[in-house]
Design a protein around this nucleic acid. Sequence first.
DNA 1: CTGAAAGCGCTTACAG
DNA 2: CTGAAAGCGCTTACAG
Lengths: 347, 347
Amino acid sequence: MEMVPAKTTIREVARAAGVGIGTISRVLNSSSQVSRKTRAHVLDAIRRLGFRPNAQARRILKRRSEMVCFLLSNRDFLHPFHARILQGVESHASGLKQHVLFAALHYSPRTPPHKIDLPPVLQEHGLIDGVILAGTVYPNLLQRIESMQMPSVAFSNNVVGMDDGQQFDQVGFDDFKGMLHATRHLIGKGHRQIVFAGDISYPWLHRRFEGYRQGMRENKLKPVLIKGRSHLSFGDFGQGSVGRILSRRPRPTAVVAGNDEIAYGLWRSLCRQGVKVPDEISLVGFDDREEAVLMDPPLSTVRVHKEEIGETCMKMLLERLHHPQMAFSQRVLPTEFLIRGTVRQLD
Amino acid sequence: MEMVPAKTTIREVARAAGVGIGTISRVLNSSSQVSRKTRAHVLDAIRRLGFRPNAQARRILKRRSEMVCFLLSNRDFLHPFHARILQGVESHASGLKQHVLFAALHYSPRTPPHKIDLPPVLQEHGLIDGVILAGTVYPNLLQRIESMQMPSVAFSNNVVGMDDGQQFDQVGFDDFKGMLHATRHLIGKGHRQIVFAGDISYPWLHRRFEGYRQGMRENKLKPVLIKGRSHLSFGDFGQGSVGRILSRRPRPTAVVAGNDEIAYGLWRSLCRQGVKVPDEISLVGFDDREEAVLMDPPLSTVRVHKEEIGETCMKMLLERLHHPQMAFSQRVLPTEFLIRGTVRQLD
DNA sequence: CTGAAAGCGCTTACAG
DNA sequence: CTGAAAGCGCTTACAG
C-alpha cells in the first residue's frame, strides 16, 4: 500500500469514490456532516489508493502550521538539562500532532533587538506558530520576538536582566524554595555550620542563595557565602573553594552547593584531600544532573522536573495560540528534595 | 517595520511596486531575469510593506519542505552523545536554510514494519523531505521508512541486526580502529597484561573488542574479555567487574573499557578500594563523554566527532534528495585518541 | 448531506 | 524582461 508513489491527490480519491473533492476533505477533517455510508466509501478509496493529504496544502488554508520552535540560546551545547526540557516539549507536542523544530542561536545582550541574527526557522513567515525560549534569554531577544508578533513562552530560570515592567509567558521552577528545603533538611539533621558555595552573579544562583539564607535566618543561623570567581567553570569553582571552606573556624559541617556541578567539583577535591563525604562534611546540590549520581555516595540534591517544564511550556504556548488576548502568565513548578547519600545526621 | 501585521500578500506588494505578481515572485526567488531597476522597486516595496512570503505557500509549489526529521529511537533520553549529533545536524542545516524537526520513537525490533507507530512528523505526507535515524535502528524500522519512500540516512553505529543484503545510506565512526589505536597506545607505553571490559552482545562493543583483539594479537599478546551481565547499566557493570579484574594472575596493568561509562564505573570502584589510577592500573575508555572529564585524573579515551557525524548525516541526506538514484553510500569517520591522565608509562 | 466553485498565497510556463 | 493566466493540493462558504 505504502508502495504507491504517494502523489495521489484528493481529486483522484474523489473520482475513485465517486464523490466531490469537498467530501473527501470533510472526511479528512472528520467533519460530522458526512453520511456514514459516504464516509465509508471515501475511507475505502483512501485506503485503496494509499492517499495521504499533502501537509503543506492543508497548512496554507488552516493558517496554522502546527509547528513550534524550541530555541536554545547561548549554549555551546544542548546539555542534558535542556535536552530533557526539549523532550518534554516533544512528547507533549506529538500527542497533540504538533511538531517541534529545534534551532540554536548565539547573540549578545547588547545587540539591538532588530539586529539579532535569528535562525532561518524564525525568519520565515508562517513556518512556525510560536517559539519556546530556552537557554539564556535577555530582554533584547524577547523584544525582538514580540516585535515579530511571534507567540512565545520562556523557560524563566535562565531569563536575565528583565525589568519588572516586561510581561511575558513563562514557566520555571522555584530556585528559592528548592534551596530553602535543602537547607532546612540539613538543619533538621543537626547541622549548624552550613556554608553556601556559588557565584551569585548568576540570577538563578542568587535566588538559590536567598533560599539558603532564609533557611539559615529562620533558625537564627549565620549564612556564609563562599563566592566564586566568575571566569571559572562551575566544576573548577567547586574545587577551588574547598580550601577556603575547610579553613573556616568553626569548621563547616555542611556545604550547600549552588548546583550539582559545583557539588561535584567540591566532592572531587574533598576526595583528593582525603576528606570523607558525608562522614566529615555533608554536601547538598541542586538540579539533579548526571553528576549527582556519578558521585560516591550519590548526591542529595534538589530535583527539578525538566520534562514537566517542557510539557508546561508547550501547553502554555498552545493556550496562547488559542487565546491571543489572554493575560500573560507565569507558572512556577515545585522542586523535590532527593535524599541520597551525602548528608549525615549529626549528634 | 516588523510591527506591520504580517498579512501582507504578494498581490499587495505587486500593486505597491506597480508590477505583476510574477515579478515579485521572481525577485523573491532571485531569478536573474529581472531588470536591476524593477528589482530595486520591488525590493523597496517589500521593505516598505514589511512583506515576508508565506512559507507554506512556497513549499507547496516547490515540492520540497526543506525540513528534515531527526528521529531518536529507543532512547529514554536525549543523551549528550546524540544531542551533539543533533547539534551537528542543526548547525549544518540552518546554514543551508533547512529546518530540523525533533522526534522520538519507541518500538520493538519484533514489530512488523507497517505496524510501527511512527511519530506524527513521519505520518504526515510532504511534511519532511527526509529523516536522519539516530538511536537504535533495527531492520524493521528501516524497512518501514523505505516502504514509505522516505529518504533517510542512519547513524550507523547503533544499527542492530541488519543483514548484509540491506543497503542504506549511513554515517558512523570506526569502532574497530578507534579501539585498535587505544590498545596500541597502551602497548606502546609498555603494557602487556591488558584486559577488555564490556558486554560484547552490543554490536558496537563487539567491534571495539575486535579492535582491541587485533591490537593484542599483532603484538603476540593474549586478549582477555571481562564479560558483563547485560541487565546491568554500563556504570554498574564497570563497578561489578573490578573484583574479577584485580584477582587475575598475572594482575592486569591496564583495562580497556568498552565505553566511558564502564570506565567511570571501574574508576569509582578502584577509588573505593584504594587502587590508584594510573599508578597501579591504567585505564582507557571510548566515546569521550562527560564522564571522561569528571574522572580524576581525566580519562584517556577515544574521541568521536559527534557534531561532524551530524553534519555528515545532513550532507548525505541532502545529496540523496538531489540524486534519488545515486547508489547507497556509507561513510566512516575517523576517531582520535585523547591522551589525558589515566595511562601510565611502564618500566 | 453533498457538489461545484472560489480561494489560500504562492510559482512557473506561456506569450509577448 | 514582464504581465496575465493557469495551477499547486487543499478548505470552506454557497447553494441545493
